[in-house]
Computed example of a mutant assay.
Amino acid sequence: MFLSELYRYPVKSGQAERLQASGVGLLGLQGDRRWMVVEQDNGRFLTQRAWPQLSQLQASDSAAGGLLLQVPGQAPLSVPVPDADTALRGVTLWRDTLRVPDAGDEVAAWLSQWLGKAVRLVHCPEQRARYLPSGYGLNSDRAAFPDGFPLLLVGQGSVDDLSRRVGRPMEVLRLRPNLVVAGAAPFAEDGWMRIRIGTLEFRLLKPSVRCIFTTLDPATGARSADREPLSTLKTYREKDGDILFGQNLAVDGEGWLEVGMKVEVLA
C-alpha cells in the first residue's frame, strides 16, 4: 500500500490544492483549513452545502508568506496572516465557538463583492485551535477549521468500489480527503487503528460521516441531479442513521509526507 494522493484545502469549503509533498503536524497538513469565510453579522461559517460557488475559490501560499486568493471575475488578492492576538472575532463552526483573528477589511470587501453577502475571512493560529469532538483522540489533539478532525483518509479501492456501484467514475475530491491510500481492498481502512507513513504514525479515530456535500461536482459546485454518490452510499454504507466513508485521523508528532510513501498498518 502507498500514499497515492495528497490534498489540502487552505480555505474551508474552498477549492482543493493537490500536493506532491507536505509537512504535517498537530493541525494536519501544513496550511490545511487554517482560513474560513464567516458571516459578518454572526460569525457562522459558510460552506459549499449552502454556497456552492465556494468551489471556485482558489487559495495558495503567497510570495509574502500569507494567502493568495483567486476567484472568477476579480483580480487576485494577497492576504497577510493576521496577528494571532489582535482583531479577534467570535466565530461558530458547527457546535464549536472560538475567537480567532480577522484577516481585515480589504479581503472582507473582496469576498463580499464576489459572494453578494457581507462576510469576513478569519485565520486559525495553532494556539487558538479547537479540541477534537468529545470522546475522540488525546487531550493534546487539536484541529483548525475542518469539520472536526485534523486529517481525513480514504482508500482508492473504496472510491473505485463506489464508482462501480454508481455506474460512473466518482471524483475522489467529492470526499474531500487529505490522504488517499492505494493498494488496499475496498474499505480495508475501516479496520485500521494505527498506520505508519514514512516516519509518522497516525491514529484512526472515527469514520467520516457523509452528507449532501458529496453530491457537489468539485470542479463546478453543481449538484448531481440523481444525488449520487450519496444515494448509492445509503444502500450499503449507512450505520445508525449515518452514512460513512473514509476515516478521520490524528498524527503523533511532526514530519513530512510525500506521494509514493509506503503505508503500513500497525494495528
Rank of each mutant, 00 (worst) to 15 (best):
R237S: 02
W114A: 04
A144E: 02
A143S: 15
G198N: 08
S158C: 09
G43I: 04
P207I: 13
L67P: 00
W51Y: 09
V38S: 05
A184D: 12
S13L: 06
L3T: 11
L266Q: 10
E106C: 10
S55W: 00
S208F: 06
V122Q: 10
L200C: 10
L162A: 11
E264P: 02
P125E: 14
E189W: 12
P218W: 00
L67H: 03
L54F: 03
R33S: 09
E238P: 00
D217S: 11
K12N: 06
A84K: 11
T235V: 04
A84T: 11
V37W: 06
Q74M: 02
V81H: 03
R196T: 00
A21W: 07
E106F: 00
E126V: 15
R33E: 09
L249C: 15
D105K: 10
I195N: 02
V107E: 07
R203P: 06
R95A: 10
G65V: 08
D147V: 02
W51M: 13
E189D: 13
G73H: 04
W35C: 03
L6M: 04
A225I: 15
A250P: 01
Q30T: 09
T235C: 03
A267M: 04
L88K: 03
L179I: 12
T220C: 03
R120N: 02
L153M: 15
D83A: 15
R33V: 01
P177R: 04
A59P: 00
A50S: 11
W192T: 06
S224A: 15
F149A: 15
L98F: 09
S158W: 08
F202P: 08
S134Q: 06
A64G: 11
S62D: 08
W256P: 06
S62N: 06
W94N: 13
W94R: 13
T220M: 04
Y131G: 06
D61W: 04
G183Y: 00
A144Q: 05
A143D: 00
V159N: 07
M261L: 12
F2M: 13
L77T: 10
Q56I: 00
A182V: 10
P186C: 07
L216P: 11
P76A: 01
E201K: 07
Q156D: 11
L29W: 02
P133N: 04
D85T: 14
V159R: 13
E238S: 13
P10V: 01
R196M: 01
L151P: 14
L46M: 10
R33T: 01
A222S: 13
T220D: 04
D161R: 05
D105C: 10
R120M: 02
